[in-house]
Design a protein around this nucleic acid. Structure first.
Lengths: 231, 231
DNA sequence: TATCATAAATGATAAATATCATAAATGTGG
DNA sequence: CCACATTTATGATATTTATCATTTATGATA
């Protein structure tokens, strides 16, 4: 279902004003010429652990998850990313092969640029290089901060985190359709699927949220935030 | 006890052949001129969360820990780093203020270079910039990988990890003096101090290690590795 | 729409881990 | 070298979390 498309140009892309804002028009054109744009349906694999790193990827639209398969075959989700979360970036400069798998969680549009072109532009354009480092640094900080705050909290705090994460970071609404299963939430915040379900039910009984299948409505954001902060 | 010293020059420093290998001799001289070199005794604070980020720091000798104080006043250790682990790097490009505290765990020598100079060199020297990105990326990957593999393991696996970490990564010997307390180990691998002690005792009873106060000897590396890998 | 697979839900139980209490060992300042 | 604080150590207990078993709901497909 992966399908090459070409709907946009770099000039009016969100990335223009973000990762690529320091490029000259000419350099941006180079990107635009070399890039390929793909549509992925929900649930498709964008790349797999072990694939050779040849492209710089960025998510133009949609939602993806970054995961790692452990030795015991269990999948662990490192993060869920929306456009501008710059997620294809993890490890592309440090290894020859991807160490994580990326899968779409909603229908998505992803652009690919030759990594060699990005490297060339980093070498050529110092402002771009520095800006790139700053952006990269933010992404990593955020991942580390999140992992840390999850690992130091207990179950209710983690569920509160994930509910707020989708509401505030991903959708910007207190009412949304969960894009992932309870099992995937469990894989993301390190707990058993049963306990994800159980604690969601508790929150429902306590009138903090409403659940209708995948639809979540948060009624008491402040209380959720307290649960998150107290751990 | 922090004390300015000047024992070395950049030319024969380990960093020369590492982070700064892509600099020209002239650029390296700029670093050498601007840098300050400090001795810190064991247990001193190098910088604190909230301090303004103005310097690029690197550890020339010794051992440091990177930690974060949580809202409930508990300290959480993110990582322990030796020279070349490049640890001062986390977050210096992404925020104005340090989000972690760095404390020495052994007597250490740390160099400071104006961050503005590093940024200038990144802009000027594309090869340096790209190399820098690659090094940074490795550091981040490693931190994320470590946090992940700790959080998915249970207590005995985590203790096995930390014992192997000191033996293989820090000291390169199966016999070493633990540079940190049991409590600090607990803060590093997310468990209670009592359980750190308890499991070390178990490992001793099982003849995997010998403990004499801070002195650890690993007798059965393979078994430790299995415990680590099986979680 | 009937059928099958998968996800969600809940209770009961087991396992893992933290906390509390207490004691011995070690280190530290006077 | 002593008093005091901190670290290490261990047992008992409480809490948290995972696992197992079972049921219900939901979604996909022929």
């Amino acid at each position: 279902m992966k399908e090459e498309i070409r709907q946009t140009s770099c000039e009016n892309c969100v990335y223009r004003s973000w990762a690529f804002e320091k490029l000259t028009n000419e350099q941006l054109k180079e990107i635009d010429n070399s890039r390929k744009e793909y549509f992925y349906g929900k649930g498709e694999v964008v790349y797999r652990e072990g694939d050779k790193v040849e492209k710089f990827l960025y998510l133009q639209k949609g939602l993806v998850k970054l995961l790692k398969t452990e030795k015991n075959e269990k999948e662990h989700i490192i993060s869920i990313a929306k456009p501008l979360d710059f997620i294809g970036l993890l490890s592309i400069f440090s290894t020859q092969q991807y160490i994580y798998t990326i899968t779409t969680v909603e229908d998505s549009i992803i652009c690919e640029v030759d990594l060699s072109l990005i490297k060339k532009l980093i070498k050529e354009n110092g402002d771009f290089a520095l800006d790139f480092i700053e952006k990269m640094s933010k992404v990593f900080d955020d991942v580390i901060h999140t992992r840390l705050s999850i690992s130091t909290k207990q179950l209710r705090g983690r569920i509160a985190y994930i509910l707020l994460f989708f509401a505030e970071h991903i959708y910007g609404h207190n009412e949304y359709e969960l894009p992932v299963s309870r099992k995937e939430i469990a894989q993301l915040i390190d707990m058993s699927t049963e306990n994800v379900i159980r604690i969601l039910s508790e929150f429902r009984k306590d009138n903090i949220i409403t659940i209708e299948g995948k639809n979540i409505t948060i009624h008491d954001t402040e209380r959720l935030r307290r649960i998150y902060e107290l751990g």
